[in-house]
């Protein structure tokens, strides 16, 4: 991408009108000199003015808070407390031996894996269905996108109701087909499944559209050649479509990483009565939820900050690994 940027308006690419041509074709030197200087300033500084809002805002509400989080994490910083004694790395030491934190980390990863794996598989299948010569195709595409637009809080409330242990529809259906009822709240594994279901339900259609776009970008003649060679539809799917979708699938997984590891709304709203503990034994408390609980319900801002930084490092590390992996796979795919 960087190479494209520099090439986009390379100096030598096109004959360019001489810069100060407007100097020659008019009189009034003094006035022009003044206007010239103004134009010069405009050309020189306006681009910076145009991009300044982003950089300013990012510095103030993005970068600075992140760095200041590291600072706060070195103090015993209680919200509303009189003084904030410096404690060095104590918050981090406590955190490393805090079983609730590791529990939350495992929960986060577990929910993330449960929600990204099945999602990609279903999204690819769904995209294959949408990639046929459907009638009213926009209507179908809108249909699969429906969950994406609904508000997350509302949806989680609805799903919490559906997965209700006592009167929930899911359990009633399980019973109807002769299976045991499941306590979707109390049992750790099943609570992860329930939360992952919400994530999947919301994002599968969206990702299917992204995969669909990539499918449509695959050149037609590749398929035609395969048909001539007598390849079956299934064979064409596995030997052509899937390999050519690989970069897109990786893209989908990578983009879901950053959001997925910060999952908050679903575990927060899954718990009844406004609790932030993620279940009675924290069985589905995620890291961001624990951070919220420590910082804004126990008012231990220093500890919450330490947690934020550890999660920050984890996310950057995973994103970095993803990035390297993507590059390797993408380049090996081209050979």
């Amino acid at each position: 991408m960087t190479s494209e940027l520099t090439v986009a308006r390379g100096r030598g690419s096109q004959p360019r009108p001489p810069r100060r041509s407007d100097n020659d074709d008019s009189g009034g030197r003094a006035a022009l000199g003044w206007r010239d200087r103004l134009t010069h300033l405009d050309v020189r500084f306006s681009p910076y003015l145009f991009i300044a809002p982003f950089f300013l805002l990012f510095a103030i509400v993005g970068l600075f808070p992140l760095l200041y989080t590291a600072y706060v994490s070195l103090f015993d910083w209680e919200l509303g407390g009189d003084e904030q004694p410096f404690v060095g790395l104590e918050n981090y030491v406590t955190l490393m031996t805090d079983s609730q934190f590791w529990n939350a980390m495992v929960n986060t990863l577990s929910i993330f894996v449960l929600s990204s794996g099945p999602q990609v598989v279903v999204a690819v299948l769904l995209a294959a269905l949408l990639n046929t010569a459907l009638r009213a195709r926009t209507a179908w595409r809108m249909g699969v996108l429906l969950p994406y637009v609904a508000s997350l809080v509302a949806l989680t409330i609805i799903f919490a109701n559906l997965f209700g242990p006592q009167y929930g529809l899911v359990n009633n259906l399980l019973e109807l087909v002769g299976l045991d009822r499941i306590d979707w709240q109390a049992e750790r594994w099943w609570s992860h499944v329930a939360i992952a279901t919400m994530v999947n339900w919301r994002w599968t259609g969206y990702n299917a559209l992204i995969v669909l776009a990539a499918m449509q970008a695959i050149p037609r003649d590749v398929y035609e050649a395969a048909v001539v060679d007598g390849a079956s539809a299934a064979r064409r799917f596995f030997s052509i479509t899937l390999p050519m979708l690989r970069p897109t699938i990786i893209f989908v997984v990578v983009t879901s990483t950053i959001g997925g590891l910060q999952i908050f709304t679903e575990p927060k709203m899954f718990a009844p009565a406004g609790s932030s503990s993620g279940g009675s034994t924290n069985q589905y408390q995620t890291v961001v939820l624990y951070m919220y609980q420590s910082g804004f319900q126990s008012f231990d801002l220093g500890y919450a900050s330490a947690m934020a930084w550890v999660l920050f490092v984890v996310i950057i590390a995973i994103a970095g690994i993803n990035f390297l992996l993507t590059r390797r796979i993408a380049s090996s795919g081209e050979d």
Partner: peptide, 17 residues
């Protein structure tokens, strides 16, 4: 582009302060 990968949500403690 790099800032796209920065989880700025994690800076909420100082932002709140």
């Amino acid at each position: 582009v790099a800032t796209l990968a920065v989880p700025t949500q994690l800076g909420i403690v100082p932002l709140y302060m």
